[in-house]
Amino acid sequence: MTTLPLHDPAADARPPAEPRRLSRRPRGGDAVFAQSFRAVGASVLVITGGIGLFLAYQSVPTLRHYGLHFLTTRDWNPEADKVGIAAVLVGTIEVALVAMVISFPLALATALYITEYAAPRLRATLVAAVDLMAAVPSIVYGLWGFFLIQPHAAGFALFLQRNLGWFPLFHVGADPHAAVPDMSRYTASAFIGGVTVSMMVMPMACSVMRQVFSETPQGEKEGALALGATRWGMIRTVVLPFGKGGIIGGTMLGLGRALGETIAVLLIISPEFVIKGRILEIGSETVAALIAGQFGEATGIQLSALLTAGLVLFCITLLVNTLAAVVVNRSRSGAQTA
């Protein structure tokens, strides 16, 4: 039998029970925990974020001394007080563009091969191989490019000049039809540097693209195949549109890496401070290689100039990488809501 609670007249006399106060604020040991880890996070923020602020602070004297001419002067001649990074910036962009032209189709093809064409039991091995490529030190790629690729690439450069020399990009200041062509004019160029850098950039771009491709909804792929599409038709209409963000973002991440690559470029390219479009010809320079090559004898104002060059490189890579992260994240979040 159900019993109803009796009315207790004493309860009316008591003040009504107050709800216990709840707070998300940690107390006692939890507060110590939260604060100490907040300190760790803040210190890491100071260390990593400090690089940019520090470079900016150190570049003040240079920018005050040279002003905007720092960006438009070609020479790097501290003795004559003429210091600028116009030629170096152009060289950096040339090397990065050569690297991207080579690595973009390779990265896209490899990512598509792994996700769409490879046998399923091979897939894990291929993914590991691409990750391994990303882990190979850049100095090893530098040796590979300098000793193995350079002779072949110089021969290819000669071939390009002979057959496409009318195109200004492929012109070299040497006679291609000489009995013994001067091969040294075709080495140590932005082209060969770019070929080597492309090997380091490719795995980064490829792994981003592969991840996005593998997130393609299986149902849409099967739908396309069921409607009679060939495999390529399915890739063109489903996988590539879905992975557009990953393709763009991965390419830009690779571009960021290509702009900042140091040691392989330093090993291969012979420094020259001239703005030139002739990428096959000897001599070019990138910002990172400039810093690595010049810091040794740098003192005072020249060190400050190098730090300013570093700041410019920092800003460019930060911009490129942030854009890439935004593009990739946006494509990912779109995948989740769809």
Binding site: F37, R38, G41, A42, L55, Q58, F295, L306, N321
Partner: peptide, 30 residues
């Protein structure tokens, strides 16, 4: 722990993973 600072830290850390290696050396050098 989280919080607003954590978002800032995460953004900065993500941006710094692709820092050109030469700049890390330059930072410590100077």
């Amino acid at each position: 722990v989280g919080g607003r600072l954590a978002t800032v830290v995460r953004t900065v850390v993500e941006a710094m993973t692709a820092l050109p290696d030469i700049l890390a050396g330059l930072f410590i050098y100077t």
